[in-house]
Amino acid sequence: MIWIVMILTGLANFAVRFSMFSGLRASTLPDWAERYLRYVPTAVLSAIIATALFLDEAGDIQIWNTTVLAGLIAAIIAILTRSVIFTIITGLGVLWIIG
């Protein structure tokens, strides 16, 4: 089952990437679509970040624990440096030291 889901997901991913130069359809997006699509990464990634930071292993919301603290410090580094690697090092480092 997982193989079928994986292959269908992969095909769907490819279809989206290929869609605008497939030659099968108009190759420009309407302005409204472009406007809304710009918020896809922000919305999706924020949702994943929030659940990783604020949900404990039981799935309950925690607003203050070591994970939240490590995330907050890493957030400052992320904004200041825009660097993936420094953000990872900071966040994991804080978690290892205080966790």
């Binding site: 918020y39 990464p41 922000t42 919305a43 999706v44 990634l45 924020s46 949702a47 994943i48 970040i49 929030a50 990783a52 930071l53 994970t67 490590a70 995330g71 890493a74 957030a75 992320a78 904004i79 440096t81 825009r82 660097s83 993936v84 420094f86 953000t87 990872i88 900071t90 966040g91 994991l92 978690l95």
Partner: peptide, 29 residues
């Protein structure tokens, strides 16, 4: 596994400039 949300933070947070960006992030979260 914590490295994954950290990676996403580095990608998302520096680009939250407009009110609409911040609102999209907050509401989704």
């Amino acid at each position: 596994g914590f490295a994954i949300p950290l990676t996403f933070m580095a990608l998302v947070l520096p680009n939250l400039r407009r009110v609409s960006d911040i609102a999209a992030a907050t509401s989704a979260a």
